[in-house]
């Protein structure tokens, strides 16, 4: 019985992986769109690092980095 637990955990982890990947892809897409909406160059966000609630540092395909966060109901995009 105990021997099955690690196997079950491994299966659960494997099943959870795609949802994490999907979440990550969704946030990268969202950040790509919001950076473009602000008229800033990026191309595509390749990496999104979460800094806090609604606070991310996005790394773009062209190497540029932006901090995207919300303040007073507005989305702020700052070049890093």
């Amino acid at each position: 019985m105990h021997a099955r637990i690690p196997a079950l955990l491994a299966v659960a982890a494997l099943l959870a992986l795609p949802s994490f990947a999907a979440d990550d892809a969704a946030i990268r897409k969202d950040l790509t769109a919001v950076i473009a909406l602000h008229g800033l160059s990026c191309g595509e966000v390749t990496q999104a690092e979460r800094k806090g609630d609604n606070d991310y540092v996005a790394t773009c395909k062209d190497g540029s980095k932006y901090r995207v966060y919300t303040k007073d109901g507005r989305v702020v995009v700052e070049r890093q």
């Binding site: 969704a26 946030i27 897409k29 969202d30 950040l31 769109a33 919001v34 909406l37 602000h38 609604n54 995207v68 919300t70 109901g73 507005r74 989305v75």
Partner: peptide, 13 residues
């Protein structure tokens, strides 16, 4: 079709 940041940014605009 769009994420939460995009929705809020659009609302701002």
């Amino acid at each position: 079709a769009i994420g939460i940041f995009t929705k809020l940014a659009l609302k701002n605009q």
